[in-house]
Computed example of a mutant assay.
Amino acid sequence: MSSATPDRIFGPVSVDGAAPSTAMLHGTTVALGTTAALIVGESGTGKSSLALQLLAFGAALVSDDQTVVTRRDDTLCASAPPAIAGRIEARGIGLLAAEPVSGVPIRLVIGMDTVEKDRLPPLYHCRILGVRLPLVHRVDATHFPAAILQYLRGGRSA
């Protein structure tokens, strides 16, 4: 099944048609091995909460709240701005320390502003710095963090 929705665009858009090579995005990024998930959404939508759950399941922190995204050919790599590297916010607890990883290729974008209602949703995509990436929407269910980790391990088959 193909998506009938247009690609969402995150980050700067070039006027002259050439995509910029670096952008600072309002988003949290976690990595599992050699791939990363970029979690985007408005403040208060649960980006850091999801990231903390993923960290508890074995993911590594790339960056919380702000992510530097750099295009290398057709790959986007995520890193933390130096001022916030190794820190993640836990509301009601404070800033927590976490060993950061850097320069990890982004495999998936998670949009926290939209709640997915379909049991088997269509394939969604977004564009960042001119690169097309798969996009999933937030799922309000306990399996969501585990499903994200499995997506990073094996991708989506349908």
Rank of each mutant, 00 (worst) to 15 (best):
residue 158 A to W: 01
residue 45 T to A: 04
residue 1 M to L: 08
residue 44 G to A: 10
residue 60 A to R: 13
residue 142 T to C: 02
residue 101 V to L: 15
residue 55 L to V: 02
residue 89 E to V: 11
residue 27 G to A: 04
residue 73 D to P: 10
residue 8 R to E: 14
residue 81 P to A: 13
residue 34 T to C: 14
residue 92 G to P: 09
residue 122 P to M: 07
residue 101 V to N: 08
residue 49 S to G: 07
residue 108 L to N: 03
residue 57 F to T: 06
residue 141 A to W: 11
residue 47 K to N: 10
residue 53 Q to G: 08
residue 154 G to Q: 09
residue 22 T to R: 06
residue 134 P to Q: 02
residue 130 G to P: 00
residue 30 V to E: 01
residue 145 P to S: 07
residue 55 L to N: 07
residue 146 A to R: 04
residue 87 R to K: 15
residue 75 T to H: 11
residue 37 A to L: 14
residue 2 S to C: 08
residue 1 M to Q: 12
residue 56 A to T: 11
residue 81 P to V: 14
residue 22 T to D: 05
residue 140 D to Q: 09
residue 15 V to G: 13
residue 104 V to R: 03
residue 69 V to N: 06
residue 74 D to T: 08
residue 75 T to E: 15
residue 46 G to L: 09
residue 139 V to R: 03
residue 24 M to V: 07
residue 17 G to H: 10
residue 55 L to A: 11
residue 155 G to Y: 03
residue 30 V to W: 02
residue 79 S to V: 06
residue 126 C to A: 14
residue 70 T to G: 00
residue 24 M to P: 00
residue 57 F to R: 12
residue 85 A to R: 07
residue 23 A to Q: 06
residue 50 L to A: 03
residue 41 G to V: 05
residue 30 V to D: 01
residue 65 D to N: 05
residue 17 G to I: 12
residue 64 D to G: 03
residue 28 T to H: 00
residue 86 G to N: 10
residue 65 D to G: 06
residue 132 R to L: 01
residue 9 I to A: 10
residue 38 L to C: 06
residue 34 T to H: 13
residue 13 V to P: 10
residue 10 F to H: 09
residue 47 K to S: 00
residue 153 R to M: 04
residue 27 G to K: 01
residue 155 G to P: 01
residue 28 T to F: 03
residue 131 V to R: 04
residue 18 A to I: 09
residue 22 T to M: 06
residue 124 Y to M: 00
residue 46 G to C: 05
residue 28 T to E: 14
residue 35 T to V: 13
residue 110 I to A: 02
residue 13 V to G: 15
residue 75 T to C: 09
residue 95 L to K: 15
residue 70 T to R: 11
residue 147 A to L: 15
residue 91 R to W: 09
residue 157 S to H: 11
residue 121 P to G: 03
residue 86 G to V: 08
residue 72 R to L: 12
residue 145 P to K: 06
residue 118 D to C: 11
residue 44 G to L: 10
residue 133 L to D: 05
residue 30 V to Q: 04
residue 83 A to F: 09
residue 77 C to S: 07
residue 114 T to G: 05
residue 41 G to H: 13
residue 115 V to P: 11
residue 94 G to L: 06
residue 145 P to E: 02
residue 25 L to H: 04
residue 107 R to S: 02
residue 62 V to A: 04
residue 18 A to R: 09
residue 44 G to M: 12
residue 32 L to E: 13
residue 108 L to D: 03
residue 13 V to F: 02
residue 85 A to N: 00
residue 49 S to Q: 11
residue 112 M to C: 06
residue 24 M to T: 12
residue 1 M to I: 05
residue 18 A to S: 09
residue 95 L to Q: 15
residue 157 S to Y: 09
residue 35 T to A: 14
residue 90 A to Y: 10
residue 9 I to R: 15
residue 124 Y to Q: 00
residue 77 C to P: 02
residue 129 L to Q: 12
residue 58 G to D: 11
residue 86 G to F: 07
residue 85 A to Y: 03
residue 131 V to P: 00
residue 77 C to N: 08
residue 68 V to K: 05
residue 120 L to H: 01
residue 77 C to V: 14
residue 120 L to R: 03
